[in-house]
């Protein structure tokens, strides 16, 4: 089953009078359980594409369906709600709420969803263990390393059991060891829980871990290959 389906997705930016076609006719399907990397040089449109798939940005043209729901037809508030219920996000940085502890950050989205306390507690603890932060549950983000923060962000994104997780350069600010740990965790969750991951990256070591690599060049898909591991 396809979690994501896009058709001829286009995004046009008009920047100081010049048009930039950041995403130019992208049609891509992502199936449940994929572990897919979007790669390509800087400015190739990775972020723009992920934003549209994640319902953070409106396409200029084309269609995006997530779990058979056409995002372009949702209102602003419906989109927020849709994101809350279906999509987990891991950004490059500023993922966490600085005034909350790691535990509370992970719990936060579940709270917004109105899950009951017991369920929240079990899930948060389970995820903190899974990402290896259990002993730092009470730390605020400022007391965590960059890699630990990203792991908390992954746990946060996973907490409400979303359809899939979008991660835009999740390792960009991490040293290679932390990056590798984060990738291990993502991979494990992908395999154990069957969570679909869609992430963008520049990093060859990250690309090597993906099972499908989609290459973007100037907003177009120029390569799409399944990697055997």
């Amino acid at each position: 089953m396809n979690v994501v389906e896009t058709q001829n997705l286009e995004k046009l930016f008009i920047d100081a009078g010049t048009e930039v076609r950041a995403v130019d006719g992208v049609s891509i399907n992502v199936e449940e359980g994929e572990f897919t990397a979007i790669v390509g040089p800087s400015g190739s449109g990775k972020t723009t594409l992920l934003n549209m798939i994640g319902g953070l940005d409106n396409p200029t043209k084309g269609k995006v369906q997530v779990d058979k729901v056409e995002l372009t037809e949702l209102s602003k508030n419906e989109l927020i709600d849709f994101r809350l219920k279906n999509i987990g996000f891991v950004f490059q940085s500023y993922n966490l709420i600085p005034v909350l502890t790691a535990y509370e950050n992970v719990e936060f989205v579940m709270l917004l969803q109105g899950r009951d306390p017991k369920e929240r507690k079990a899930r948060v603890n389970e995820l903190l263990v899974a990402v290896g932060i259990a002993d730092k549950a009470k730390n605020r983000p400022s007391k965590l390393s960059g890699g630990q923060q990203q792991r908390v962000a992954v746990a946060r994104a996973l907490a409400p059991k979303p359809k899939f997780i979008i991660a835009d350069e999740p390792t960009a600010n991490l040293d290679s060891k932390s990056a590798s740990t984060l990738l291990d965790i993502m991979q494990q969750l992908n395999e154990k829980e069957g969570i679909t991951f869609l992430f963008s990256t520049h990093d060859q070591r990250v690309i090597d871990r993906a099972r499908r690599v989609v290459t973007l060049t100037d907003g177009k898909i120029t390569e799409d290959k399944i990697v055997d591991v």
Binding site: D81, I97, V109, L112, A157
Partner: peptide, 8 residues
Amino acid sequence: MLMAIGMG
């Protein structure tokens, strides 16, 4: 970020 992750 809060809005992105679904805070209304």
